[in-house]
Amino acid sequence: MNSIILRTAIRFLMPLLILFSLFLLVRGHNQSGGGFAGGLVAAAAFALYSLSYNANEARRVLKISPAVLITSGLLVAVSSGLIGLLAGQPFLTGLWTYITIPGFGALEVGTPVLFDIGVYLLVFGITITLVFSLEEGA
């Protein structure tokens, strides 16, 4: 697609969409959102980019190969389960800890966050693989 409006708009939309996807990822803990939705929004940013330019250009901007995203997503998700196992609990048991950040307060961090990040990367990677393949096949 060769549209100057889309090309101009995407430059402003990309950072917003990626920020929004991270927001969704973090928010997903206690409210609606999460890794899956976040990953889809992040993929949407790159899908838009590849629509307004082309898949090769989008790959160049992404810098990491989608395959690496997929596998690291899987690895992060599995390791969130492994942490519970190493702590002597059943696989995937959620473990939580508090990190105090000066000037911010206590932050609750746990293995489910890691799992969500894994899902985020996996969904992101798979969706853009699909979009890129469709673009290149056309």
């Binding site: 190969s65 395959a67 690496v68 997929i70 596998t71 899987l74 690895l75 599995v78 492994l82 196992l85 002597g88 609990q89 059943p90 696989f91």
Partner: peptide, 27 residues
């Protein structure tokens, strides 16, 4: 409930970790 059931989960963990490692090699 203190058992971690490591042996029970191993038949699932080993193949998935192998698959992930293989995919990394591929990627």
């Amino acid at each position: 409930m203190s058992q971690s059931g490591f042996l029970l989960i191993a038949p699932l963990l080993v193949p998935i970790l192998t698959a992930i490692a293989g995919l990394f090699g591929l990627a």
